[in-house]
Design a protein around this nucleic acid. Structure first.
Length: 548
RNA sequence: GCGCCCUUAGCUCAAUUGGAUAGAGCAUUUGACUACGGAUCAAAAGGCUGGGGGUUCGAGUCCCUCAGGGCGCACCA
């Protein structure tokens, strides 16, 4: 219905000689300002240096809407135009919720963009930490939101298995294997000291036999490289699977090299005249594309910087036909964005192709104190430890409560509470209570069908609940457009949750004192609200329990 | 030194991207169950949006400046 109104406003704007003008049509914060409001008249007036209220009168006078859509129009404040929708619009919207069910909130538009969302992409050097968990929750939710917005999404994980970090973990594992059998060995400089490598060492010895530790160092390290990679990858995959995250594509850096893509990327840059030799190194003119200094591609020792495989990998994404490559990165990589963007622009990719969503640090707090490490990792809190303590639902919800770009204090005590202080509990409780209504009624929600009788929904809480659930698709579209899942947690906790609890508290569905027509309509309302709660939670990867 | 992000109620955070009277939760105070789960609800109180200047019908949001905090500035990944 807002689409219809928007289209008509666009038509009026064109008639008033303002083609393509940008204006806002949205649900006002204050319900006293109508169901929908637009600033069109003020934008027009600014352009024409006219009185906004007079312009608003012209706009309203030119509107031609079919009967039964808008009940009332008002010009208010500095020149806002407020619309009250006709009641039958709400009945129709409710009908749509029941009809679409689990897909309510999803865009109707046809095949959208092909989007690649790359996230987590942890080095295969150890278990995932809580920061990876936040990236996983955020990337997965952004992917789900984009799917809901009608786009074709691929969830991808990039395995950095060709760099020096994997050498270090191989050397570290080799040292632990020797230590386990009483042979002298030291963890190398920059190596990994976590307890988990001791576990891995014991597992390798159990599988390969104790003589494995007596191999020459170079062969031992070489074999440890493959073993460490496999062991760490398997553990990360388990961590992710248990966190409810599933990837469509795992791409390995080694495979990017093996396919010749890295050499091809270098050739392509050279062909375009973007590289030059200086001081024995090969440089890229990223400054021509907005970077603050040129960057080295091949160091004077002949090895490549990590920029080269990263560029090759993103070219590969473009070759695979993606319109967008959205990368979820740790915030410590933000300095790396300009040069990546510069290179991709230089290679002729459109500026909107490459997008980065940053994830800030997670500080785990228990009893008011920061928790700095887990026993197993030795240096960070693992995702598994956190999930074991608070559960997947609470972990995901807390990770998604704030914008990714702001630092997060994860309050473990609060996440475990079974009271309203815990936002995820509060929201899930709303769903469980609605389910409870149907238990009491001894009916399946799906068996309650038909249209709402607005005349029978006499309580103000009825109307409030109806308007709140009808606003859900707009919230999804906005969250997808902005890549901001926290808008959905905010919708759940600040809007829908309180409205459901308030409705439940103040009105009665089963055995409604107003009579059977009211009971029927309230059951229909409860069924619809339950759908919206479940869909919103589902987008975030959180369960919607019927009992708690 | 340069660049990016941040500073909003006692605390943790929002604010429809420049809109109407800056909103939630926690904490505090007061009240509400013989009813679908009181694991909840209703209400009160809490603010010079870090300071100052500017842009305009209109600024938490944009620009300048000052103060405070975080991160980044490799021929590391």
């Amino acid at each position: 219905m807002s689409e219809l109104l928007r289209a008509e406003l666009v038509r009026v704007a064109e008639r008033l000689g303002a083609d393509g003008i940008e204006f806002v049509l949205e649900r006002p914060r204050d319900a006293g300002h109508g169901d929908l409001a637009t600033n069109l008249a003020m934008v027009l007036a600014r352009r024409e240096r006219a009185n906004p209220r007079k312009t608003a009168e012209r706009v309203v006078g030119a509107l031609q809407l079919p009967a039964g859509v808008v009940a009332r129009t008002e010009i208010a404040g500095p020149g806002f135009i407020n619309f009250w929708l006709a009641e039958n619009q709400l009945v129709a919207a409710h009908r749509r919720i029941l009809a679409e069910g689990g897909r309510y909130g999803w865009a109707e538009s046809g095949p959208g963009l092909k989007v690649n969302v790359e996230f987590v992409s942890a080095n295969p050097t150890g278990p995932l930490h809580v920061g990876h968990g936040r990236g996983a929750a955020l990337g997965d939710a952004i992917a789900s939101l984009l799917e809901a917005a009608g786009q074709r999404v691929t969830r991808e994980f990039y395995i950095n298995d060709a760099g020096v970090q994997i050498d270090r973990v191989a050397q570290s594992l080799w040292a632990r294997i020797r230590q386990e059998t009483g042979l002298p060995a030291e963890i190398p400089e920059g190596g990994y000291h976590g307890e988990y490598l001791r576990e891995n060492a014991r597992a390798v010895l159990a599988a390969e036999g104790p003589e494995f530790a007596r191999l020459p160092d170079d062969e031992g390290v070489r074999r440890c490289r493959a073993l460490a990679l496999r062991i760490q990858r398997e553990e990360q995959d388990r961590d992710l699977a248990d966190f409810g995250v599933r990837f469509d594509v795992m791409t390995s850096e080694q495979a990017v090299y093996a396919a010749g893509r890295v050499d091809r990327a270098l050739d392509l840059l050279a062909e375009r005249g973007l590289t030059y030799e200086s001081e024995g190194a090969l440089w890229l003119r990223t400054t021509q594309f907005g970077d603050d200094k040129d960057r080295v591609l091949r160091k004077s020792d002949g090895s490549l910087t990590y920029l080269v495989p990263d560029v090759a990998y993103h070219l590969d994404k473009a070759d695979r036909g993606f319109d967008r490559a959205i990368d979820v990165w740790g915030a410590d990589h933000h300095g790396y964005i300009p040069r990546m963007r510069a290179v991709l622009l230089a290679l002729g990719l459109p500026p909107e192709f490459f997008e980065v969503e940053l994830v800030q640090l997670v500080k785990v707090v228990r009893g008011g104190e920061e928790v700095k490490m887990s026993k197993r990792s030795g240096e960070f809190v693992t995702l598994r430890d956190l999930v074991d303590e608070v559960g997947v639902d609470a972990a995901r919800y807390f990770f998604l409560m704030k914008k990714g770009a702001t630092p997060l204090d994860f309050d473990v005590d609060k996440a475990k509470k079974q009271t309203e202080e815990n936002p995820v509990f509060y929201v899930q409780m709303a769903h469980a209570r609605l389910s409870g209504i149907f238990r009491t009624a001894e009916r399946e929600p799906e068996s309650v069908t038909g249209d709402l009788d607005l005349g029978a929904l006499s309580a103000p809480q009825d109307t409030e609940l109806l308007k709140t659930i009808v606003a859900f698709p707009e919230a999804v579209a906005k969250a997808a457009r902005e890549r901001e899942p926290h808008r959905i947690t905010a919708y759940l906790h600040d809007e829908l949750g309180p409205v459901v609890h308030g409705w439940y508290h103040h009105t009665r569905a089963v055995g409604a004192p107003e009579g059977p027509a009211t009971e029927q309509s309230r059951l229909l309302l409860a069924r619809a609200a339950r759908i919206v709660l479940a869909n919103a939670l589902g987008l975030l990867g959180i369960s919607a329990p019927d009992r708690m």
